[in-house]
């Protein structure tokens, strides 16, 4: 499954309620169905750490870091890449 985040959050991904909604209703069900997930950040220029945390931290916490073998991040700006790296790194320290 590919999720085009711009359609949900516009150019600045900061709304944690939307992140939670995407996580619960799209990411988790797809992963439970053994599918792969692509989070496409095309046209999203920036994101907050809180947004990315709300989007993916629980997926890692509940499934372990191996779950990232089935999660792809596409068209990320440098800022978004760095924020995703921060979140994934600290989740691995404590998962």
């Amino acid at each position: 499954m590919e999720i085009k985040l711009y359609e949900y959050v516009g150019t600045f991904a900061e709304n944690k309620d939307i992140a939670k909604d995407i996580r619960i209703n799209k990411i988790i069900p797809s992963l439970e169905n053994s599918e792969e997930i692509t989070l496409d950040f095309d046209k999203v220029k920036s994101a907050t750490q809180s947004f990315v945390h709300a989007l993916i931290s629980d997926v890692i916490r509940k499934n372990g870091i191996k779950i990232l073998d089935r999660v792809y991040f596409k068209n990320c700006s440098d800022t978004i890449k760095k924020i995703i790296e921060i979140v994934i790194e600290y989740m691995q320290d404590h998962s």
């Binding site: 750490q49 809180s50 916490r61």
Partner: peptide, 16 residues
């Protein structure tokens, strides 16, 4: 109390 927070909060905002 978990270091790293919950699914909704990481405890990083004010530090940033």
């Amino acid at each position: 109390t978990k270091i790293g927070g919950t699914e909704a909060n990481a405890g990083a905002g004010l530090f940033f």
